[in-house]
Protein backbone atom coordinates (compact mmCIF):
# COMPACT_ATOMS: atom_id res chain seq x y z
CA UNK A 1 0.00 0.00 0.00
CA UNK A 2 1.03 3.53 -0.36
CA UNK A 3 0.61 6.04 2.36
CA UNK A 4 -0.82 9.45 1.92
CA UNK A 5 -3.70 10.98 3.78
CA UNK A 6 -2.33 11.13 7.28
CA UNK A 7 -1.25 14.65 8.13
CA UNK A 8 2.13 13.45 9.33
CA UNK A 9 2.59 10.92 6.59
CA UNK A 10 5.35 11.38 4.11
CA UNK A 11 6.33 8.78 1.60
CA UNK A 12 8.45 6.02 2.97
CA UNK A 13 10.60 6.23 -0.07
CA UNK A 14 12.20 9.32 1.43
CA UNK A 15 15.24 7.70 2.90
CA UNK A 16 18.40 8.54 4.67
CA UNK A 17 20.56 6.96 2.05
CA UNK A 18 19.96 7.58 -1.63
CA UNK A 19 19.53 3.94 -2.42
CA UNK A 20 16.94 2.83 -4.93
CA UNK A 21 14.45 0.19 -3.96
CA UNK A 22 16.04 -2.39 -6.17
CA UNK A 23 19.36 -1.91 -4.48
CA UNK A 24 17.76 -2.20 -1.09
CA UNK A 25 16.14 -5.43 -2.08
CA UNK A 26 19.46 -6.66 -3.31
CA UNK A 27 21.02 -5.78 0.01
CA UNK A 28 18.39 -7.80 1.77
CA UNK A 29 19.12 -10.73 -0.47
CA UNK A 30 22.80 -10.39 0.20
CA UNK A 31 22.10 -10.66 3.87
CA UNK A 32 20.13 -13.80 3.26
CA UNK A 33 22.79 -15.23 1.01
CA UNK A 34 25.36 -14.30 3.60
CA UNK A 35 23.57 -16.37 6.18
CA UNK A 36 25.48 -19.34 4.95
CA UNK A 37 28.40 -17.61 6.50
CA UNK A 38 30.71 -17.28 3.53
CA UNK A 39 30.92 -13.75 2.27
CA UNK A 40 32.84 -14.95 -0.76
CA UNK A 41 29.99 -17.13 -1.92
CA UNK A 42 29.59 -16.79 -5.64
CA UNK A 43 33.15 -15.80 -6.36
CA UNK A 44 35.55 -18.37 -7.71
CA UNK A 45 38.39 -18.77 -5.28
CA UNK A 46 40.49 -21.12 -3.28
CA UNK A 47 38.95 -23.71 -1.01
CA UNK A 48 37.53 -22.24 2.19
CA UNK A 49 40.12 -21.51 4.81
CA UNK A 50 40.18 -23.56 7.94
CA UNK A 51 40.48 -21.18 10.83
CA UNK A 52 40.98 -22.43 14.35
CA UNK A 53 40.19 -20.04 17.13
CA UNK A 54 41.22 -20.75 20.69
CA UNK A 55 40.10 -19.64 24.09
CA UNK A 56 37.36 -20.20 26.64
CA UNK A 57 34.89 -17.82 24.98
CA UNK A 58 35.04 -19.48 21.56
CA UNK A 59 32.38 -22.00 22.57
CA UNK A 60 29.97 -19.11 23.06
CA UNK A 61 30.49 -17.67 19.59
CA UNK A 62 29.26 -18.71 16.16
CA UNK A 63 30.91 -21.97 15.06
CA UNK A 64 30.59 -24.74 12.51
CA UNK A 65 28.36 -23.55 9.71
CA UNK A 66 26.61 -20.83 11.73
CA UNK A 67 26.62 -17.29 10.37
CA UNK A 68 29.72 -15.57 11.66
CA UNK A 69 31.77 -18.75 12.04
CA UNK A 70 35.54 -18.18 11.96
CA UNK A 71 36.03 -19.65 8.48
CA UNK A 72 33.46 -17.32 7.00
CA UNK A 73 35.29 -14.26 8.25
CA UNK A 74 38.69 -15.16 6.86
CA UNK A 75 38.36 -13.23 3.62
CA UNK A 76 36.48 -10.23 4.96
CA UNK A 77 37.86 -6.78 5.65
CA UNK A 78 38.56 -6.52 9.36
CA UNK A 79 35.90 -3.90 10.06
CA UNK A 80 33.27 -6.14 8.50
CA UNK A 81 34.55 -9.27 10.21
CA UNK A 82 34.13 -7.47 13.54
CA UNK A 83 30.41 -7.10 12.80
CA UNK A 84 30.02 -10.87 12.91
CA UNK A 85 31.57 -11.44 16.33
CA UNK A 86 28.59 -10.82 18.58
CA UNK A 87 30.49 -10.01 21.76
CA UNK A 88 32.21 -7.06 20.08
CA UNK A 89 29.27 -4.72 19.48
CA UNK A 90 30.81 -1.90 21.52
CA UNK A 91 34.22 -2.20 19.91
CA UNK A 92 32.65 -2.48 16.47
CA UNK A 93 30.45 0.57 17.04
CA UNK A 94 33.53 2.44 18.23
CA UNK A 95 35.37 1.52 15.03
CA UNK A 96 32.53 3.01 13.00
CA UNK A 97 32.23 6.06 15.23
CA UNK A 98 35.93 6.84 14.90
CA UNK A 99 36.39 5.97 11.25
CA UNK A 100 39.12 3.51 12.10
CA UNK A 101 38.19 1.05 9.36
CA UNK A 102 40.81 2.34 6.94
CA UNK A 103 43.55 1.69 9.43
CA UNK A 104 42.21 -1.78 10.18
CA UNK A 105 42.16 -2.81 6.53
CA UNK A 106 45.63 -1.61 5.61
CA UNK A 107 47.36 -4.01 3.22
CA UNK A 108 50.36 -4.25 5.55
CA UNK A 109 48.14 -6.01 8.05
CA UNK A 110 47.08 -5.41 11.63
CA UNK A 111 46.49 -7.28 14.83
CA UNK A 112 43.33 -6.23 16.67
CA UNK A 113 43.06 -6.85 20.39
CA UNK A 114 39.32 -6.41 20.71
CA UNK A 115 37.78 -6.14 24.19
CA UNK A 116 34.39 -7.76 24.72
CA UNK A 117 31.20 -5.86 25.45
CA UNK A 118 31.49 -7.06 29.04
CA UNK A 119 34.99 -5.60 29.21
CA UNK A 120 33.75 -2.22 28.04
CA UNK A 121 30.85 -2.35 30.48
CA UNK A 122 33.27 -3.12 33.32
CA UNK A 123 35.49 -0.22 32.33
CA UNK A 124 33.19 2.64 31.36
CA UNK A 125 29.91 3.93 32.65
CA UNK A 126 27.13 4.06 30.10
CA UNK A 127 27.22 7.86 30.05
CA UNK A 128 30.98 7.90 29.60
CA UNK A 129 30.74 5.41 26.76
CA UNK A 130 27.91 7.33 25.09
CA UNK A 131 29.89 10.53 25.39
CA UNK A 132 32.90 8.99 23.69
CA UNK A 133 30.83 7.34 20.97
CA UNK A 134 28.88 10.49 20.18
CA UNK A 135 31.04 13.45 21.13
CA UNK A 136 34.57 12.57 22.06
CA UNK A 137 35.59 10.35 19.20
CA UNK A 138 39.16 11.68 19.38
CA UNK A 139 39.58 10.11 22.80
CA UNK A 140 37.80 6.99 21.62
CA UNK A 141 40.00 6.73 18.56
CA UNK A 142 43.07 7.00 20.76
CA UNK A 143 41.68 4.24 22.95
CA UNK A 144 41.06 1.96 19.98
CA UNK A 145 44.56 2.52 18.64
CA UNK A 146 45.87 1.27 21.97
CA UNK A 147 44.36 -2.05 20.84
CA UNK A 148 45.88 -2.26 17.35
CA UNK A 149 49.33 -3.61 16.49
CA UNK A 150 50.93 -3.45 13.05
CA UNK A 151 51.16 -6.75 11.21
CA UNK A 152 48.70 -9.63 11.30
CA UNK A 153 50.16 -11.64 14.15
CA UNK A 154 48.90 -14.99 15.44
CA UNK A 155 48.67 -15.12 19.20
CA UNK A 156 51.59 -17.57 19.33
CA UNK A 157 53.83 -15.04 17.59
CA UNK A 158 52.77 -12.32 20.00
CA UNK A 159 53.66 -14.57 22.90
CA UNK A 160 56.95 -15.54 21.33
CA UNK A 161 57.86 -11.90 20.84
CA UNK A 162 57.02 -11.16 24.46
CA UNK A 163 55.87 -7.65 23.67
CA UNK A 164 54.13 -5.60 21.04
CA UNK A 165 53.93 -1.94 20.16
CA UNK A 166 50.53 -0.54 19.33
CA UNK A 167 49.91 1.87 16.49
CA UNK A 168 49.37 4.46 19.21
CA UNK A 169 52.96 3.88 20.27
CA UNK A 170 52.27 2.17 23.56
CA UNK A 171 54.19 -0.95 24.46
CA UNK A 172 52.38 -4.05 25.64
CA UNK A 173 53.90 -7.02 27.40
CA UNK A 174 52.61 -10.33 26.11
CA UNK A 175 52.97 -13.52 28.10
CA UNK A 176 51.62 -17.01 27.64
CA UNK A 177 48.44 -17.63 29.54
CA UNK A 178 46.21 -20.69 29.42
CA UNK A 179 46.89 -21.57 25.81
CA UNK A 180 46.52 -17.94 24.77
CA UNK A 181 48.10 -14.70 25.85
CA UNK A 182 47.97 -12.22 28.68
CA UNK A 183 48.40 -8.70 27.40
CA UNK A 184 49.68 -5.78 29.43
CA UNK A 185 49.69 -8.03 32.51
CA UNK A 186 45.90 -7.97 32.86
CA UNK A 187 43.92 -8.66 29.69
CA UNK A 188 43.60 -12.28 28.58
CA UNK A 189 42.71 -13.53 25.16
CA UNK A 190 39.36 -15.30 25.46
CA UNK A 191 38.99 -16.21 21.80
CA UNK A 192 42.15 -15.71 19.80
CA UNK A 193 43.21 -16.05 16.19
CA UNK A 194 40.22 -14.96 14.19
CA UNK A 195 41.47 -14.25 10.72
CA UNK A 196 40.25 -11.49 8.47
CA UNK A 197 41.74 -10.05 5.30
CA UNK A 198 45.19 -8.81 6.33
CA UNK A 199 44.23 -9.02 9.97
CA UNK A 200 44.20 -11.14 13.08
CA UNK A 201 41.52 -10.52 15.68
CA UNK A 202 42.07 -11.61 19.25
CA UNK A 203 39.13 -11.12 21.58
CA UNK A 204 40.31 -10.01 25.02
CA UNK A 205 38.51 -9.66 28.33
CA UNK A 206 39.72 -6.27 29.52
CA UNK A 207 40.12 -2.84 28.02
CA UNK A 208 43.73 -1.69 27.48
CA UNK A 209 45.10 1.82 27.61
CA UNK A 210 45.23 4.46 30.28
CA UNK A 211 41.75 5.94 30.41
CA UNK A 212 40.26 6.05 33.90
CA UNK A 213 37.69 3.49 34.93
CA UNK A 214 34.27 5.09 35.22
CA UNK A 215 32.10 2.00 35.67
CA UNK A 216 30.88 0.86 39.04
CA UNK A 217 28.11 3.33 39.78
CA UNK A 218 24.37 3.35 39.25
CA UNK A 219 24.94 4.74 35.79
CA UNK A 220 26.17 1.35 34.55
CA UNK A 221 22.61 0.15 34.14
CA UNK A 222 20.45 3.25 33.92
CA UNK A 223 16.83 2.72 34.77
CA UNK A 224 14.29 2.51 31.97
Amino acid sequence: MTNSQSPTATPVSRRLLPIAGATLAALLLVVIAGSGGNSDAGTAGPAPATVTVTGPLCDQLPAGSEPGNPNSLAGQPADQALQWIPVLTTFEAAVRATGLAAELTAPTGVTILAPTDDAFAAKFSRTNLDDMLLNDTATLRGLLRDHVVSGALPVAELVAAGSATTVAGTSLTVTAHGGGARVDAHADTVCADYQAANARIHVINEVLGTLPTTAGGEDDHPAH
Partner: peptide, 16 residues
Protein backbone atom coordinates in the same frame (compact mmCIF):
# COMPACT_ATOMS: atom_id res chain seq x y z
CA UNK B 1 19.08 -14.81 8.86
CA UNK B 2 22.26 -14.38 10.84
CA UNK B 3 20.83 -16.49 13.68
CA UNK B 4 21.26 -13.60 16.06
CA UNK B 5 24.89 -12.88 15.22
CA UNK B 6 23.91 -9.46 13.87
CA UNK B 7 21.11 -7.09 14.68
CA UNK B 8 19.13 -5.72 11.77
CA UNK B 9 20.88 -2.55 10.68
CA UNK B 10 19.16 0.62 9.54
CA UNK B 11 19.42 0.00 5.81
CA UNK B 12 18.05 -3.52 6.14
CA UNK B 13 15.30 -2.33 8.46
CA UNK B 14 14.11 0.12 5.82
CA UNK B 15 14.30 -2.53 3.09
CA UNK B 16 12.38 -5.05 5.20
Amino acid sequence: TTLGAQYTNDVNEYAY
